[in-house]
Amino acid sequence: MERLMVKVKNPFVEALQNIAERQDIGSFKKIFDYFGPRLKSFLMKSGADDAVAEEIIQETMTIIWTKADYYDPSVASPSTWIYTIARNKKIDILRKTRKAVLEDIETAILPPVESKADENIEHDQKFEMVAQYLDDLPKDQLDLLKMNFFEEKSHGEIADITKIPLGTVKSRIRLALEKIRGKLEQDGSMVNLNNDGGSKVN
């Protein structure tokens, strides 16, 4: 898939901002329609049954609705933010279904945010660069990342499944992550330059 390297605002960034600013149900539905079915396949692949997966989606959507103003487009792409919330919520809910001691860890499951971004700055491009890099990776390398960060398998499990030596699994995953980190930071420094001395305009 070829990505257009032009500045097109990610529609989900806008949707999240509409929810935060004016509780826009239409934007909320747009996120539900796109991410709901994808979250379900993610959750079911990593061990949840149908009912639990939907419970996690319901809780994830509630967090998106009530905490949309925590979303910071300079820190993560919308899909990353939603993925993080769902993954963390899953840990909370699976624990409860295992009849462990109930304890409110609501606040702890939220990805921490340090600063609000200047809304005038375009961040989409650095996340597009990451997506482009992943699109271009050979399939066998992409599969290693998928097993680690999407199917939530440990390096040892991945080595068993793929018959690739453990050290090689680790170094390949690490190498890809270093490349991605480089892309995220490269753009970050440019953003800082542009943002020099700038203040948030409301």
């Binding site: 539905k29 396949s41 939907e54 989606i57 993560a76 990353t80 933010w81 993080t84 960060f149 999407f150």
Partner: peptide, 28 residues
């Protein structure tokens, strides 16, 4: 952050599983 972006990438490109009809109303 790089690890989370990888997770987000796979979520965005994930296959879809049909949701039950009542889920949207439950969310609302």
């Amino acid at each position: 952050s790089a690890m989370n972006e990888v997770g987000g990438y796979f979520l965005e490109n994930a296959e879809t599983s049909p949701l039950s009809n009542e889920l949207w109303n439950k969310v609302l």
